[in-house]
């Protein structure tokens, strides 16, 4: 099978003052292209660190991480930025849209940093249409509801046609009805485009909709509970 992520022996150590914090202690797993999976675990389990590492926002202290054929662990900051730009789409809990820009402007941002000038507007338009916001393109974030803002964020995540979409509690700031809509949107996009979807969440209901769950505890894969839910596509 085609592997989009290979992680081997990932560790991450922070220094908080004098104390060393081991956020990850040797985690290994693989993710197939097109998979939908969730990462769960109590707070302090290394969930956020895992997301930052998988999203190329941070480098592991040791171990090997191959994302879509590129070995990320030893990259420079700018190379990481380029990988994030091309291969990762982020969806955050708090949307993180720039309030000065219109929906279209926000969706265009990754394309700008990719250096794409031609057809940028059209691509952004297409992405907004894909999330059902064709008649909200020139609205600014504060003119949109929470669900609509998160749709803009989803459009921004997929506009550059990434290998994976990292969603960090994507429904955390939304009521349950709108949250379901966003989940359905993400799952549908995964079906249509085949983009690998990784969701970091607390919510077992969200995790229940994914094909696989990776559980973390104290910086390691939970030995008892890991990969308990594995569904067919």
């Amino acid at each position: 099978m085609d592997r989009v992520i290979e992680a081997r022996g990932l560790t991450k150590t922070y220094k908080m003052g004098e104390i060393e914090v081991h956020a990850l202690r040797g985690v290994s797993f693989e993710i197939e292209r097109g998979e939908v999976l969730s990462i769960m675990g109590p707070s302090g389990s290394g969930k956020s660190t895992m997301m930052n590492t998988l999203g190329c926002l941070d480098r592991p202290t040791s171990g090997e991480y191959i994302l879509d054929g590129e070995s990320v662990a030893e990259m420079t900051d700018d190379q990481l930025a380029s990988v994030r730009n091309r291969k990762v789409g982020f969806v955050f809990q708090s949307f993180n849209l720039l309030s000065r820009l219109t929906a279209l402007g926000n969706v265009e941002l990754p394309l700008r940093y990719a250096g794409i000038a031609e057809g940028r507007r059209e691509k952004a338009r297409a992405a907004l249409e894909a999330v059902g916001l064709q008649d909200r393109m020139t609205h600014r974030p504060y003119e949109l509801s929470g669900g609509q803002q998160q749709r803009v964020a989803v459009a921004r995540a997929l506009v550059n046609n990434p290998a994976i979409i990292m969603a960090d509690e994507p429904t955390g700031n939304l009521d349950s009805k709108v949250g379901r809509e966003i989940m359905n949107l993400l799952l549908n996009l995964n079906k249509e485009l085949g983009t690998t979807l990784i969701i970091v969440t607390h919510d077992p209901n969200i995790a229940a909709q994914t094909q696989r769950v990776i559980r973390l505890r104290d910086g390691e894969l939970d030995p008892e509970n890991n990969e308990t839910i594995v569904r067919k596509k």
Binding site: G55, L57, D77, D78, A81, S82, R84, N85, R86, F90, N96, L98, L109, P110, Y113, A114, R156, N160
Partner: peptide, 16 residues
């Protein structure tokens, strides 16, 4: 700061 973080997450390099 958050805006800068976001821009970096979206692929902005240092010089951007």
């Amino acid at each position: 700061t958050r805006e800068i973080g976001l821009r970096k997450a979206l692929g902005a390099r240092k010089r951007d």
